[in-house]
Amino acid sequence: MRRLTRRELALMLGAGAIAGTTRAEGSGPVALPGVVGMAEAKAKLGRPLSREQADRVIAGAMAAAVGAGSGVEAAASIFTPGDTVGIKVNCLAGRSLSPRVELVEALVDLLAGAGVDRRKIIVFERTSRELERAGFTIRRQGPPYRCVGTDNDYDRLPSSSGAIGSCFARIVSTECTALVSFGVVKDHDLSGVSAGMKNWYGVIHNPNKYHQNGCDPFIADVARHPFIRDKLRLTVLDGVVAQCHGGPAYRPGATFELGLVSASTDPVAADLWAWQVIEAERRRRGMPTLEEAGRPVRFLATAAHHGLGVDHPDRLRLVTA
């Protein structure tokens, strides 16, 4: 698929060529169905990006995602200064295959640059222990931002969405007004792909209940719960190093240097891109497709069916910084 440039996207937006786009000037957060912005970031497995590189990559991907002139401008079009922003990172695979700290901190800086109070930016994961293992420092109150595990601080009562019934982390249900899924690009043994949407399993108390049938319809059901559907503004995927097999745990032989970071206001499109990337690498290695391997990616069609985003490759628009 040919990638658009940010400028081309801006022209398309001006011409109304992206169906379903929300927010004209000043009327709420931007949402661009099917659009995935991306920026290049080369680094070996386990090697950090320089902070300068991380800033450039995040700003580039964000700007590309919404056709903005800069990362700060992009952040300002997605978030408001009054928001409390929760950034859910997926740290299950430890330091080797979790979102890079420097990328997450670059996003935090962009949000702060767009006027969001740093004390209201919460980087979180299921447990503090997982965060620490992935290289994050626990900061219950900040500065320069809060970084905490939900550590079983769930709602007292479950709430239902489709087939799921779960207690949600209070950070999500109560504290935050806006959410970011910050995942990695990796294979998953059950759902096929674990990128942005599967990451939300980490905010319910009982994810183990929802692994049947390739996690379908459960991933979509979690994501369409109002706590997430109404607050999710952005999905960022760290694809500097990705993994095409053996997930969700880190599997050294299955990682590859993809060298890309993506950002999208469409959670389904973000994962569709991740799926395509994983399939491409599997093809390159002569491996069977995920479907042939017995784990077809079903949850994206279900999510699209519920109106959460775009799952058709023809409507996916990749935009480079």
């Binding site: 043994d189 059950l190 183990n208 209940k209 049947q212 053996g246 997930g247 969700p248 745990a249």
Partner: peptide, 25 residues
């Protein structure tokens, strides 16, 4: 194969990848 296991305790017959849990948690 590949580090997976299949639980033979209950009829859910969970197939569980490394670092994951069965349905019972």
């Amino acid at each position: 194969e590949e580090g997976r296991v299949e639980c033979e305790l209950c009829p859910q017959k969970c197939t569980v990848a490394d670092m994951e849990r069965g349905m019972c948690g």
